[in-house]
């Protein structure tokens, strides 16, 4: 995949570029601020964008705004956003197909990161487990009705995992996962959803429902 990378810390930018190349991707451009990111995307037409949230000149949410701008121009452009902390408001605004939102610390879990990148590029939705945990922590009343195992499944689903991946993570059969998911959707009054990522969106929409 051709990737455009935006990260203001030189150390991290080079580390990330090395990581992407290690997993067989091409870094078309690695830039250090939001205007350069917009220009690089324009020039290289990448298959996926990886961007930091906080970048020069304002060190606020330039990367995120750039991501939103890019998505408005090209709604199918996959974007993986890296953030220092969870910004609840932005999670709601940003989430959609082909969007990933990971905390920066996750980069260290190299394989997880590479896997998330692939899933976002394929049009999936990936949300950092920490974000999911925080959303779960805030929405609880109907969630109380879920069994502990169902809540585990829900957290993994919200991270954008497929039935097979959830089954592997929990060491159960895929059929068991499917049964749990049907139970969860029923308890949360969500319509049964077909593919993985529509299911993720439904769950996320539910989780942030009371924002």
């Amino acid at each position: 995949m051709r990737v455009v990378l935006a990260e203001d810390s030189v150390l991290l930018r080079e580390g990330l570029a090395g990581l992407l190349e290690r997993f067989g991707h091409t870094v078309a451009a690695a830039v250090g601020d939001a205007p350069a990111l917009l220009a690089a995307v324009e020039e290289h037409g990448p298959e996926i964008v990886v961007t930091d949230v906080r970048m020069p000149p304002g060190f606020a949410d330039e990367g995120l705004r750039a991501a939103l701008t890019l998505r408005r121009a090209r709604p199918d452009l996959p974007v993986l956003v890296l953030s220092q902390y969870v910004q609840q408001a932005y999670v709601a605004e940003l989430m959609g197909p082909g969007i990933g939102y990971l905390l920066k610390d996750r980069i260290g879990h190299v394989e997880e990161f590479a896997d998330a990148l692939e899933r976002v590029a394929a049009g999936g939705t990936v949300v950092d487990p920490e974000v999911v945990r925080q959303l779960l922590a805030r929405r609880r009343d109907p969630l109380q009705r879920l069994t502990p195992r169902e809540r585990e499944v829900l957290a993994l689903v919200a991270e954008g995992r497929s039935n097979a991946a959830v089954a592997r993570a929990l060491v159960v059969t895929e059929a068991a996962v499917a049964k749990h998911i049907a139970g969860i959707l029923a308890k949360l009054d969500l319509p049964p959803a077909g593919d993985d990522h529509r299911r993720v969106l439904a769950v996320l929409a539910y989780l942030r429902g009371r924002d």
Partner: peptide, 21 residues
């Protein structure tokens, strides 16, 4: 801490993670 040590540590975990592979 954030601009210095934390960034370096993230880069370090990244390098070590790649070395593992």
């Amino acid at each position: 801490l954030h601009d210095g040590a934390q960034q370096r540590l993230v880069a370090l975990t990244l390098s070590l993670g790649m070395a593992r592979l």
